[in-house]
């Protein structure tokens, strides 16, 4: 009885997430992948079929035109590069702000620590969309920030804050900061205080001990937090649409426009596949690193 439940139970527990991933990730991926090798046509669905029957025998029809188009129109390349830049800068900002915060929480007293963690998680209680809208109210020409600065006499004409790179960075860093802080905190909190004492004992000043002991040991947390910010930031749609420039789109917006404005499904699918390829590289690197860590951790 016990054996039966344990074997069946294990299969069930492993099976549910596997089935979930197959159904909701792999199958859609295959559909999108397949569409990216079609050509657009005015029909329902709006793309050419992959298999055609000519004189009774099936023929595979693969079109590269969607991918070719991506590299001929500079819009796509520049959107990709811009997205990578925005995501990279945002990730570095999150790291620069998040590391000291995570460090402070990890070293806070046992009474204040849960309160601080609560404050990090608190924004999730409000809808993400509402929080981004709130930034419009803060950043716009007659918004809170400009009005305050003008009433104080610091400036005489409103600053153009909205629809700039700056607004996008603020939006992304603000929204994704918890995803940087939480894994970093989880890592820093586990650090053995004796290691820093040992470093001090061996002659390392606090700053040196931090660089040689704390930072290398928190590397898994840095990588995890950075990926959690970087990956969604690359494909971010809402924040650049609401706060960002109109002359330079991020790739997420391009993708959505291709689907819903242009109704060019093959090109939209090709854009999606290329985003995925861009993101798969860092994910694989991270997984390799994690495997090495696991082997090392014992």
């Amino acid at each position: 009885m016990a054996r039966l439940t344990s074997a069946a139970g294990r299969r069930l527990i492993a099976g549910i997430p596997t089935g979930w991933l197959l159904l909701l990730f792999l199958v859609p991926f295959i559909i999108v992948f397949r569409i990216s090798f079609s050509e657009v046509r005015l029909a329902i669905p709006p793309y050419t079929p992959l298999l055609t029957f000519r004189h009774g025998s099936p023929a595979l029809e693969l079109h590269w035109s969607a991918y070719q188009f991506l590299f001929t129109d500079p819009l796509y390349v520049s959107s990709y590069l811009y997205s990578l830049k925005v995501a990279a800068v945002s990730t570095l900002c999150c790291l620069a702000i998040g590391y000291p915060m995570a460090y402070a929480i990890a070293h806070a007293g046992s009474a204040t620590r849960p309160v601080l963690l609560m404050l990090i998680v608190l924004p999730f209680w409000t809808s993400f969309l509402l929080r981004v809208y709130a930034w419009i109210g803060l950043l716009k020409n007659n918004g809170v920030i400009n009005n305050l600065l003008m009433s104080l006499g610091v400036i005489h004409h409103p600053l153009a804050l909205l629809q700039t790179d700056f607004a996008v960075y603020i939006g992304i860093v603000y929204s994704y900061l918890p995803f940087m802080i939480l894994p970093l905190y989880a890592n820093l909190e586990k650090h053995d205080a004796a290691l820093l004492e040992a470093a001090a004992d061996l002659g390392a000043r606090p700053a040196r001990a931090f660089l040689r002991i704390t930072v290398p040991q928190s590397f898994p947390g840095i990588v995890a937090g950075s990926l959690l910010v970087f990956i969604p930031a690359v494909g971010e749609y809402v924040i650049p649409t609401l706060l960002g420039r109109t002359d330079q789109l991020m790739i997420g917006r391009v993708l959505s426009d291709e689907f819903f404005e242009n109704r060019d499904w093959p090109v939209a699918s090709a854009v999606a596949i290329l985003i995925l390829l861009l993101l798969v590289v860092p994910i694989l690197l991270f997984q390799r690193y994690q495997r090495r860590e696991l082997e090392g951790a014992r």
Binding site: D192, A194, A198, A199, A200, L202
Partner: peptide, 27 residues
């Protein structure tokens, strides 16, 4: 502590896990 002519062997040993034996001693 980092300027005292005193060194300690910790109960938990407190070896730096990310460094090799040589690097630990060289630290």
């Amino acid at each position: 502590p980092y300027e005292r002519p005193v060194n300690m062997m910790f109960q938990s040993y407190a070896l730096f896990p990310h460094m090799s034996v040589e690097r630990n001693i060289a630290f």
